[in-house]
Design a binder for these strands. Sequence first.
DNA 1: TGCCCTAGGATTTTT
DNA 2: TCCTAGGGCA
Length: 836
Amino acid sequence: MYSLADLNPVQREAVEHRDGPLLILAGAGSGKTRVLTYRIAHLVARGVAPWSILAITFTNKAAKEMRQRVETLLGSAGAGLWVSTFHSACVRILRREIDHLSGYARSFVIYDTGDQLSVLKSCLKELDLDEKKFPARGISAKISDWKNRLCQVQDAEGQAAEYFEEMAAKAYRLYQKKLMANNALDFDDIIMLTVELFRQNPTVLDYYRDRFRYILVDEYQDTNHAQYTLVNLLAARYRNLCVVGDDDQAVYGWRGADVQNILAFERDYPEAVVLKLEQNYRSTKHILQAANAVVRHNLDRKAKSLWTENLSGDLLIHYAAEDERDEARYVAERIRRLKDREGRPNKDFAVLYRSNAQSRILEEYLLREGIPYRVVSGMKFYERMEIKDILAYLRVLHNPADRVSFSRILNVPKRGLGESVLAKVLLYAEEQGLDMLAALREAEYIPGLRPQAREALLSLSRLLEELREQSLEGKITDLVEEILDKTDYWTMLKADNTPEAQARVENLQEFLSVTAEYDAKIPEERDEQAAEEGNRPAAGTASGSLAEAEDRLGPGAEDRPGTQAGGTFLTGGEDRIVSGTGDTASAGAEDRPIPEAGGDFPAEEEDGPALVIDDFSAGVGGFLEQVALVADIDQLNEGDDGVVLMTMHSAKGLEFPVVFLVGMEEGIFPSSHSLLAEAALEEERRLCYVALTRAKEKIYLCCASRRLLYGHIQSNLPSRFFSEVPPELMLDRDPIDPPPRRQGRMGGAVRGGGFAGTSGHGRSKNRDDGSLASAGTPLATGKSETYHVGDKVEHEKFGRGIIVSVKGEGASAILTVAFSGQLKQLISEYAKLTRF
DNA sequence: TGCCCTAGGATTTTT
DNA sequence: TCCTAGGGCA
């Protein structure tokens, strides 16, 4: 049960608002998840059918948390509610409506970034585009950008303004053709195709519009144009759209997210009610003041200011390190000391950095101090080679059209089938219009093969046929074990006696436990689905003893319902337990959103509310979908106690008692890629705001005057963000330290000396400050010209740029210059730069 | 075909 | 520094 008394007045208003558009501007730590979950619960309690509510989040983690919290509030009364990520929801819809999608079969697979890249590379090769001028990653970003803006191939071709875009559009066309031939979608397609589906099939759109009468979207500031369009299409009829977000926390602009979506909500919905959640329950006053002060330097934002009733707390602490080792040493030593003094567990601490490359040295020093830590890193479990190999087998079995996966497995483990054989098989399949399994079966007709290759292909064919048969029934775990065994994958790894191979074996074992978990869930899901399809809202019997329902609400129940295949649904037993809402379901039945006429999906309407966009795909398909969409296997679980290391981006949404921000230097944070563009800088500043507001009690801000990065030593100025924190909020010396031994290291220097200011780069000011200059504000004292970090320069070929590091001195100094979009290294003497 | 070596590139990454 | 992709050679 829930009580509105748990809420502050604004939160309460948000929860009680029923119909019509609602914009909730929720500052960091203002209890927005609570508001969202209570709001859902309250809607249901007031008679809104749970199956007419769609709640969308960006991450599986957020979806899972919301689902659990709603379940705690509502119990089984929430059955049928959709809490889902954009991608899971859309995949469900696409599979359900596959008949309306020309070119794709129901067994479509989802390509991740790596797969996308390999398709794209083959396109570029085929188009004979120079990899140097048209790097796959760059083209891929462009295509993604188009898709996020709902530009289809023809649109892109029409719009392409310059040569690069023309070529990118060409690649786009071929890329889409290949994806379709492989019966594969990439992540961006999932959203774009759903929008397209709705636009081209009014009846389909009607159905979902009527079904989802109440829509809630979390992190609305992170939606891209395609997602925005999707949501607004769905909400157009009933206009019961509630969006929650914070423009100050928009840090994914580079991925196509458009802050304007939230900024312009009132334009889209003039009748919207706008509520600001500004009371923060997380951080101390000092931390909040600092965060507010920093983000206030941004021009393009909605005015708001977080406040808190929490204590003032400690001041922020600044540490100016000599280099990255000193910085890491400081962090490790500080953590040790706080643990000793205050008895804090390791998991109280987080160290946040701008880029993953910064983690290594921190690990080294934590290790040295014997402090347990966890790195939440870029390398995802499912991106590991051995896992991708096995997944490729599964994908080929499930979707034999998948050439990317086929290419991956053809010679893994080694079968003496190399590039040339692959090319021949692909060509043959192409010419004969066959999928890969069929092509293999006909290996003897493939021209130009040597006998050994032919034999190897046939033997692979037999193996795959056998596995395919097995894949149609039975457990995934058995299938995977069979694959590992029969392909000699195990043998291959075990023969290789390296620690890497050992790690791969362990990863595969981990993978097997994932499959086992999936297998274990299947019978339960089936029951639930049967129940949902047949018996709701009338009390059912399929899975619904009272005891079982109660069990689901018990403490151990968290993870059971609805985590299959993207974990979209809040499912539950049939008995309704929540008092006061006992008649919810029957009320809902009358209220049910399915149009009596004109619906395209009578099957569901016959027997009860269309609870489920069905399509529960067990077996390989369901498993693959889960793997594709639920990318991380909970990297951070509450249980284990370790200092957390991660990027500032990954930290969004989390909180820690003590936070360290490291690498606060111009060129690192804000990143060198952002130094030239005001909009990018504002995004960095928002990231700084996000990072600061992760801290509940203490925060340390560190910079180093020299830093070894990518094998080169570079000198950076302290980040401009330091100068944006009011000086009275920050200390140069941690009060837990004994009084200063007279002259610390360059300590303190930065506070007094002035920083790279917001207005530009306070080079001369900094140089007056003895300690800073000695700390290595880099000088290149050439005969003719001396450059400094932060100097704005112009190059005849690369255009305008900004110097981000200076190595060596004099005419031979090596300058690293950030030009728009690219970093260049130039020798001072020959650089031919002019200032601007 | 497969291994080894070198050159060049290297933010952030919810799906 | 460290990773990887691609070229050259056995």
